[in-house]
């Protein structure tokens, strides 16, 4: 990433644009929560929008769009374990508990 004053100014414009998109998507999230599209569809849509928002924050605000390889590797390992964690609850179907 360039570090000259001009470069920084250009980056700031991108950040502000991402910020506006994030605000818009927050509005969309709240808006669609009032529309009944079936329980599953509502959950899927809300999580899809949240993932888009999170990706925007990670890519632009956290500069992941242009980062060094070592950081990608670190996050790749974290992502794999995270996915494993998310699927861990499915294991309970083998021996269900009732809360």
């Amino acid at each position: 990433m360039g570090d000259s004053v001009e470069d920084i100014k250009k980056h700031v414009r991108t950040y502000v644009m991402v910020f506006v998109v994030l605000l818009f998507l927050t509005g969309v999230t709240v808006g669609i929560s009032y529309v009944d599209m079936g329980h599953t569809m509502n959950i899927v849509l809300a999580l899809v929008i949240a993932t888009i928002k999170a990706s925007l924050v990670a890519a632009y605000f956290m500069h992941l769009i242009s980062e060094k390889k070592l950081i990608y590797y670190t996050l790749l390992i974290a992502a794999l374990f995270f996915i494993g964690l998310m699927f861990l609850p499915t294991g309970q179907s083998l021996d269900p508990i009732h809360l």
Binding site: N42, L47, A50, A54, V57
Partner: peptide, 16 residues
């Protein structure tokens, strides 16, 4: 930003 990112998921998951 990470703290912000966590909230982006917490908001729909808990409130919506």
């Amino acid at each position: 930003h990470f703290v912000d990112l966590v909230w982006i998921f917490l908001f729909p998951v808990l409130y919506l």
